[in-house]
């Protein structure tokens, strides 16, 4: 009796081991062989990767898609030493000190890392950069467009259903619907484009068209026309990261299609929540301040805002111990 009981225990253990292996194999096969169980991306009820959640890019692409070194100011002027590399911050950002600099980046552009502008378009890009404050739609809180909205320094939230994927951006409360079903397009060209998605195995592929050509890619003045056609590819690389790759075509501006690629990261704070950034209000002074009866900034000349920086300098003897006061 005792030995028989022991024997059956061993067999039961073996049987359950076999079953658990079978079950594990079934689960792993159903998800993907590339991921360990713990790191497997979540899946929807119909077995697709589930991108629902709050995400954010963590890079410097919003400053400049191309590789660049750090700069002392988002707006600069020639320094006392007349070298290009010795420029200093200019008035619009001077009062912000080191917080107004631009961080460096290895860039997110594929191949040789260069955006293949046509010669005349390259000139416009350079001018855009020189007139960043006047020309960048971001500063006016305009809808940021795609792909720019995907890598701005603000979170966005994905709500993924079977036929629609809704994307809510914090910046300017911009919205995007990726249609996985067949729908009619927009009645006119748009800032955010028309997104038609499909699944290619575990990759969500989105064709984006119907742009109005008024958006930029970044704060460096990289731009496109209304002929822009994007092919985005969203591929899970872990449960908390998506590889985001975009093929960019615009025969009006570029000599050939080019690519950007970057990871998007899940916001892992347990209380993560998308908060509104309704910046049209924040841009009112910037856009309409010169039309006030009594302007807050006193150096408006017609439509030109002339920024005059007033900041009390630290007394010399307190330069290094101001915090002890």
């Amino acid at each position: 009796m005792a030995s028989q009981f022991r024997g059956s225990t061993v067999v039961v253990a073996l049987a359950s081991a076999v079953i658990s292996v079978l079950v594990t194999v079934a689960v792993v096969t159903r998800t993907s062989n590339r991921f360990s169980q713990a790191d497997a991306p979540p899946r929807t009820a119909d077995g697709k990767p589930d991108f629902s959640g709050i995400w954010q890019a963590l890079n410097e692409a919003h400053w400049d898609l191309e590789a660049h070194e750090a700069r002392p100011g988002a707006v600069m002027q020639q320094g006392v030493y007349p070298y290009e590399y010795a420029r200093v911050p200019a008035a619009p950002v001077l009062a912000l000190g080191a917080a107004a600099g631009v961080p460096g980046s290895v860039g997110v552009v594929g191949d040789d890392g260069k955006i293949p502008y046509k010669p005349e378009a390259a000139k416009i890009k350079t001018e855009n950069g020189e007139h960043w404050i006047d020309r960048d739609p971001e500063l006016k809180c305009y809808l940021p467009g795609i792909p720019r909205a995907m890598y701005m320094p603000y979170p966005f939230q994905i709500v993924q259903s079977a036929n629609k994927i809704q994307v809510a951006f914090a910046f300017s409360t911009a919205a995007r619907t990726i249609h996985l079903d067949d729908v009619e397009g927009p009645p006119d060209l748009t800032y955010m484009g028309h997104s038609a998605g499909r699944w290619d195995s575990d990759t969500l592929v989105v064709d984006v068209t119907e742009f109005n050509g008024r958006n930029w890619f970044d704060r460096a003045g990289n731009y496109h026309s209304e002929a822009l056609h994007l092919t985005e590819r969203f591929t899970p690389i872990s449960k908390d990261a998506i590889q985001y790759e975009v093929t960019i075509e615009d025969p009006n501006v570029f000599t050939r299609p080019w690519k950007i690629s970057m990871p998007l990261y899940r916001r892992l704070e347990p209380n993560a929540q998308l908060l509104e950034y309704r910046c049209m209000e924040f841009a009112e002074e910037f856009m309409y301040g010169g039309l006030r009866k009594q302007p807050l900034v006193h150096h408006w000349e017609g439509e030109t805002l002339i920024v005059d920086i007033k900041r009390k300098a630290i007394e010399r003897d307190k330069l290094h111990d101001w915090y002890r006061r």
Binding site: H179, P186, Y191, M192
Partner: peptide, 21 residues
């Protein structure tokens, strides 16, 4: 109708706000 898709996020008020100015 989902296919007719008559819900518009654009054109948006802010990008064309000549009225306020």
């Amino acid at each position: 109708d989902d296919k007719a898709n008559r819900i518009y996020t654009e054109p948006r008020c802010h990008e064309g706000n000549y009225g306020l100015a």
